[in-house]
């Protein structure tokens, strides 16, 4: 079958898709977007978290055909997505020195806080954490833990992921106040 959907603001289509293929497989193997990860392929680890019409989902549990005509945001589009959000709220999207869209605040915070080790869980955690900050700019620690409880990380023990989300929230707050 052929499927069409929007990924990170761009229209994509894929041909010869077998009906049993997941959205994750089509993103990774047919659209050249391997950022969403394949750690369990049964919806337990959250490494493949993407936003489907704004809602965080495990792309491994979504049949590719279910995404037909819908909007998908993956980790590859997170910086642009966060930039648009900043623009809507009146701020200017962060730009790097070269002029391209800089990292999303949550991406930069993960680097700065040491929340990345092997990094395999990172794309899914970033999408989930960005979605949290989207709807709840000042989450409590318990809110962060609840929002990210569907994303497994085996390297960090989560402490620096907590630090990163707190850091991104505070930087986002500062940017909005400016």
């Amino acid at each position: 079958m052929r499927v069409h959907f929007t990924v990170n603001g761009r229209q994509h289509e894929a041909d010869d898709v077998w009906e049993g293929e997941s959205l994750l497989y089509v993103l990774r193997e047919r659209m050249g977007l391997p950022g969403s990860k394949n750690a369990c392929e049964q919806g337990e680890c959250g490494s493949c978290t993407v936003r489907l019409d704004g809602v965080p989902v495990c792309a491994c549990l979504v049949a590719a055909g279910q995404a037909e005509g819908r909007e998908v945001v993956t980790v590859e589009g997170l910086a642009a997505h966060a930039g648009q959000r900043a623009q809507r709220s009146g701020g200017a999207p962060a730009r790097s020195e070269g002029g391209q869209a800089a990292l999303a605040p949550i991406q930069q915070a993960f680097i700065d806080a040491g929340a990345v080790q092997c990094g395999f869980c990172t794309p899914g955690l970033l999408v989930a954490a960005d979605e949290l900050l989207d709807r709840q700019p000042n989450p409590s620690d318990a809110d962060i833990r609840e929002a990210l409880s569907g994303n497994l990380c085996r390297c960090t023990g989560y402490e620096k992921i907590m630090d990163a989300v707190r850091l991104a929230a505070s930087r986002q707050g500062e940017a909005a106040r400016r």
Binding site: G35, V75, L103, Q108, I111, D112, G119, T122
Partner: peptide, 15 residues
């Protein structure tokens, strides 16, 4: 900071 940090947060790091 990790030299591979940016690639890992943008999804570009090739596992």
């Amino acid at each position: 900071l990790r030299p591979d940090g940016t690639l890992k947060v943008t999804g570009e790091f090739a596992y």
